[in-house]
Amino acid sequence: MYDFTYQKPASVADAVKLLGADPEAKALAGGMTLIPVLKQRLNKPSALVDLADAGLAGISVAGGTVRIGAMTTHATVANSADVKKAIPALAKLAGGIGDKEVRHRGTIGGSLANDDPTADYPAAVLALGATVETNKRSIKADDFFQGMFMTALEPGELITAVSFPVPEKAAYMKFPNPASRYALVGVFVAKGPAGVRVAVTGAGQNGVFRQKAMEAALGKSFSQAAIADIATPADELNSDIHAGAEYRAHLVGVMARRAVAAAG
């Protein structure tokens, strides 16, 4: 790790001010990706602006929407009675991220801002048609994710919360990378206000994506049979020592069918 200064502002406004004043400064949410990167000296920020005291943690449910503050940890989401009741698939997804230590440090805002192509949350945000709230605006899920580690966030823009419309039914199925346990392929299937959506994480070369052929089929008949013959083109999928693109394409189908079955 290189030296950096550490600041812990007490509000989003102060955080934004600090980040705006120093283009080399970085926001620190849970640090589950950033800290290992710093330890390996792969990044050299001048300052870390810790958002822990910026008042961004918390969960509320109102008017058919679950709103989760950006600094809410995965463990909090996983264990929230409100989330479990409103969107059990989301609580289950949060409970399956990393390990216990990661779940108690990592946050939803940090995960989304980082947009790791093998992270779990992007699949839920995209499939549920969630809205990402920032200090400047609200961004629709479809506009938020723009490729591997690339989002619509602009300099000086911080995620403050994510609002999830409560779906009629939803489920997430993950095939973990055997080594890292990140998603090799993760499929979130939801039927809700935004219609039927199927979002795939872990597999795509450009990060999370929607499997629209499956969405169309499930829109007609929400059943495993409806998507049994829908193949996912392998040409834009990742290939590595754990899984080639063809295998990933196959797993998208398996995980999607299992998610449909689990969603009921």
Partner: peptide, 9 residues
């Protein structure tokens, strides 16, 4: 290629 626990199982 398997230089860390991210890839060495």
């Amino acid at each position: 290629v398997t230089g860390s626990f991210m890839d060495y199982t």
